[in-house]
Design a protein around this nucleic acid. Structure first.
Lengths: 213, 213, 213, 213
DNA sequence: CATGAATGAGTATTCATTCAT
DNA sequence: GATGAATGAATACTCATTCAT
């Protein structure tokens, strides 16, 4: 019971923080969404900011874990970067609210909390940076500003959380492979992402977020 | 004098809305930033939301005007899309705060105000969509999901407002041409944006935002 | 407990609205009078205007109920009008604050709320109008402007709330019968109100306002 | 010019204080109604309360003057009381806003200012009290509570300001003589007010308020 | 004469949070 | 577990008033 309630609170918070922003969400909004009194809410959370920090850390932790799983054992930079893109896109497509909270509400964090979030984010982006740098070194990627390119590609993929709808005509597979193609092309690479890698990403996502994908 | 004060209020609002969000910015924060008492603030604005609406509409209006100027008379889809990318990137690099407000605070708008903002945004994206569709029809761009591609590219370029610093090593020219290259490559086009078009974009930006670029 | 507190808030509001007017009464005055913090006040009320509306509707509702009870079954216009006068005067003498709020603060109401109050008021005055018209038709009252006369008499009786003090020399019985005499005389009727009817009014008042009279 | 403007400010204040109450009327409302900037307002008045005090004192002063003129030289209590009633009613019918301010906004006065207003009011009511007491002594009026009766009659007549409209079917003459009849009847006196006295009241009112009546 | 600018104190209302029950 | 009650501090915004120009 308690576990479920705690989860309901978390989901209410994710939904509202994503929709109205952290500062735009009142504790009473949260209570209503979670179908609890506002006093009861405090059995399942610390402060409002604790809730935000937990959401952000968990979301980023999962993304990082998933990215590590998806690229574990991949030597080829094209496969690695393509997998990172596909995974990122899939994650943002199936968890758009969590993602938007992570992307948009950093400013609401206390400096201390922000440091932890930024550290996770940096670790995650390191995976992208390594893949790109390795690809450039291997001559399969072509860019004279690898960092700028990395930032551009990550932002491109994160944007998915702002518009993708599972009820639209575009399937997750198409979406992910389309983005992988865009990214690899932008890196000057014509080879597409192998469908085995895409399939692998789906499985990782499915496991990490415990959702059928 | 009054004109200057009004402008100071606007700039304070842009800075704080971009940094702390609309709901995270108090009227007292605004007053302090504008070096006014909070009561005096109300000589220069309507409500806090009026200020937000004005900022958003002006910013989008300028972006749309600039985009129309930059592409006016360009028949070639490659030049048009490249110019849109360069212009978008330049605008986001020199006005990152305005831009972040427009991108992140739509949720804080009243439905009525939101409609106006969305209409401007749609008009702007129409320019991108036309350029991409024309390029595909002309066989110079290759994508089987033009709308998705458009969204991906716009998001990629908007991301600039979140990390670019004019004090960093990367110049505006390099930035813009790099993004134009990424975008054109992603569209399966190897031809780069001509430097004359880039120069034209700089001039348009310089005129519309009245800033030397 | 909660019920008592709610009632305490209501009484504080009645007292202050009557004494200083609705707009002259601050939420802090209310809180102080009710011995609550101003934030706590909002557990027991909606807005300040909600409080005013509730006070007005309840007061008028009671007056209307009492008037209907006091005249129920009375066929004789002299008894009916005399009873209405006595009842009105008694109500205004024992509830002067509620009454003054109803009489003086209509201008502070939102149009929507005003409509409801005016409807109750009209229903109440209808009772007076009927009694007067019936008396004129029966030849026991003499006035060629029944509506004007009704307004004059109601205002005359309402005035009691502005000056009567239970600590003064005049008892409630004397007060009520004196006004009944004034009213009946003004209507050209020499027959006084029977003491049984006066007694009946006292009982109705006592029941409706739950106060020994 | 200045004199006219000052008068315009006074009239704006009377209108708004009567309609929305003193505390419900803002200095900006006043400025708008007087077609002046709120700063300019202060050339023509002291504080907002000064304006209220002036309005009240002038209104009461005029009423007192008029009452003294109307009854000067009248020995007969019936004529005196009838004239007071007629005059009061006429004054309230043609100056309903001034009157409502006087009647309803006493609570908004500082104690010091209130004393002056109450003194004028007492002097005025003294005229009524004398006429009633003289009539009782002379055996033409019959009431065992002269003070209560006086209060009742004054309130009855003041009520006119709350409902009378010059655009309605009832003329001023009819109104005044109807009220005189009601009052005299209530005092147990069957003799009506002579039409010469009514005419005299009209002339006094016309002179004191400088309005054709 | 007139007013734009300015403000300290005030407005009603909501905030996140605690705690006794 | 759950919540009604409670509140100090904050919210956006308005007040009556002054004053330099």
């Amino acid at each position: 019971m308690a576990v479920n309630t705690r989860e309901r609170v978390r989901q209410a918070a994710v939904k509202l923080f994503a929709t109205k922003g952290f500062h735009g969400t009142g504790i009473r909004d949260l209570a209503q969404e979670a179908e609890l009194s506002s006093a009861s809410l405090y059995h399942y959370m610390g402060t409002k900011e604790d809730l935000l920090v937990a959401i952000m850390n968990e979301s980023l932790r999962r993304l990082l874990d998933a990215a590590e799983q998806a690229t574990a054992g991949l030597a080829d930079p094209v496969s690695r970067l393509g997998s990172l893109v596909a995974l990122h896109v899939l994650a943002h497509a199936i968890q758009p609210e969590d993602t938007r909270v992570v992307d948009n509400e950093v400013h609401a964090l206390t400096p201390a909390a922000r440091d932890g979030v930024v550290a996770l984010r940096d670790a995650y982006e390191r995976l992208w940076a390594d893949a790109i740098e390795d690809g450039v070194a291997a001559g399969v990627f072509h860019t004279d500003q690898p960092s700028v390119t990395r930032l551009a590609l990550v932002e491109m993929c994160s944007g998915v959380a702002r518009w993708y709808s599972p009820r639209g005509p575009l399937g997750l597979d198409q979406l992910a492979s389309h983005y992988a193609e865009l990214a690899l092309r932008a890196l000057g690479c014509t080879r597409p992402l192998g469908s085995a890698h895409l399939q692998n990403c789906r499985e990782v996502v499915s496991g990490v977020w415990r959702v059928p994908v």
